[in-house]
């Protein structure tokens, strides 16, 4: 099953729409609540990152019998040092984004903790792609 969502720059009001929709689908498919929780945390963080840091992007979700694959690809400034960005507490979020309670440097670590496979690729000035997989069993 394939689903696609569009993410718009700065559109915080709709942050979580893709995660919410994927959550409903997984529940309908009787995926275990523990797995659904992990998928939701990881996908929400990726959505928020694309909204907060990039100039828009897409969320592609593929659900198979044994796993879910989520790819969040944005057009954006890119990440010059991915290892640094992965560190808990490191953030480049703007002050107004931090005031909302985002930008604590917990997004990528939250993704890492909740998925079975995480692959971040980025080109400065072009964009970032976050690929995540969660196994159902």
């Amino acid at each position: 099953m394939h689903q696609e969502y569009t993410v718009i720059e700065g559109d915080f009001v709709n942050a979580g729409k893709a995660s919410s929709s994927v959550k409903k689908t997984l529940k309908q498919l009787n995926v275990s609540p523990q797995i659904v929780k992990r998928v939701v945390v990881a996908l929400y963080e990726a959505e928020v990152n694309a909204i907060a840091h990039a100039y828009g992007g897409t969320v592609s979700v593929d659900i198979e019998a044994d796993k879910i694959t989520m790819v969040v690809a944005d057009k954006g400034p890119g990440i010059p040092d991915i290892a640094l960005a992965m560190q808990e507490g490191y953030s480049t979020a703007r002050p107004e984004v931090r005031d909302m309670g985002f930008g604590a440097g917990m997004g990528l670590p939250n993704m890492q903790k909740n998925v079975d496979k995480l692959n971040v690729t980025s080109e400065v000035g072009v964009g970032t792609t976050v690929e995540m997989e969660v196994n159902f069993a």
Partner: peptide, 25 residues
């Protein structure tokens, strides 16, 4: 907590969430 990713990562189903954040997120 007032940090959204902290709540996202660590709150549990059925929790009461105490915060000063008021926006839609």
């Amino acid at each position: 907590s007032d940090l959204l990713s902290d709540v996202m990562g660590n709150a549990e189903m059925g929790n009461v969430w105490v915060t000063l954040q008021t926006h839609k997120n």
